[in-house]
């Protein structure tokens, strides 16, 4: 196993032994279960409510884990000075960043798999038809979470944990709003506000592209080409951020 793999496995082991993660997964299970209760309260569309709530719970918990573990991945190593002994080994700084990222990605994959299993179990218990659109939605949620993790990791290479959390959360919100804001601005004047929105539109990740939860909950299957392109977009965006994180980390003093 190469150095990246060793770091990744250790990061995965670290998160497995972190009790907070178990609490979050438990909370996700609870939310999915709660969707059944809400479905009972609604007059119609029981199936849609259960599917909608389940997907939203998976997305929410995934993003929370991505942000809060992502921002502490590197900072915790520096604050606790564990980085000293790691960097004294024959491992490049870029390998360290990549290993940490892949370790968290593996953790997120396992967590999402557990949440998906609970979701599917809930659907089958309440005789909600399990359609391929739900798997498409979860796949794109996972891509979105990979992007959010890369954002958190990027900021954590040069700012404090608190600032990283604020910036990541901010970019996450902007990422879901840029397309709507741009649509609003299309008919407006070409002032500085429009330029700012244009800048944000091109710089911030277009996370709405990865959001097909609404249509998936009612069984509308997205075109496979769209899912592939959206996934490629997300992976490439994460790749650019990780490259930036490696370059910034390369210049840091500890």
């Amino acid at each position: 196993m190469g150095a990246i793999g060793v770091i990744a496995v250790n990061a995965f082991r670290e998160s497995l032994r972190d009790k907070i993660l178990y609490n979050l997964v438990f909370f996700a299970g609870l939310l999915i279960g709660l969707s059944v209760l809400l479905a009972d309260l609604s007059i119609t569309e029981h199936h849609k409510v259960i599917a909608d709530m389940g997907l939203a719970a998976i997305n929410l918990i995934g993003v929370i884990i991505a942000i809060f573990i992502g921002i502490s991945l590197v900072n915790k190593e520096i604050e606790r000075r564990t980085i000293y002994t790691i960097m004294a080994r024959p491992i490049s700084r870029a390998s360290f960043i990549m290993g940490k990222y892949l370790g968290l990605a593996l953790t997120l994959f396992v967590n999402m798999s557990i949440m998906l299993a609970v979701f599917l179990l809930t659907l089958s218990l309440y005789h909600v038809p399990i359609q391929s659109s739900l798997f498409q939605a979860v796949a794109l949620i996972f891509v979105e979470i990979l992007v959010v993790t890369a954002i958190a990791l990027f900021f954590s290479t040069f700012t404090s944990t608190t600032l990283s959390a604020i910036f990541t959360l901010g970019l996450y919100v902007i990422g879901h709003l840029t397309a709507d804001l741009r649509t609003l601005m299309i008919n407006g004047d070409s002032g500085p506000l429009k330029s700012l929105v244009d800048l944000l539109y091109y710089l911030a990740p277009n996370l709405e592209m990865l959001n097909i939860k609404g249509q998936a909950a009612v069984g509308i299957v997205a075109a496979p080409g769209y899912v592939v392109m959206a996934s490629l977009y997300g992976v490439m965006y994460a790749g650019v951020l990780l490259t930036g994180a490696c370059l910034v980390f390369q210049q840091r003093d500890f």
């Binding site: 000075r81 564990t82 024959p90 491992i91």
Partner: peptide
């Protein structure tokens, strides 16, 4: 980086995993 394979280091007041 390759030279570090031949070096051992213990930091002051070490914190480990």
């Amino acid at each position: 980086v390759a030279t570090r394979r031949r070096i051992g280091f213990l930091p002051e007041s070490p914190y480990f995993y």
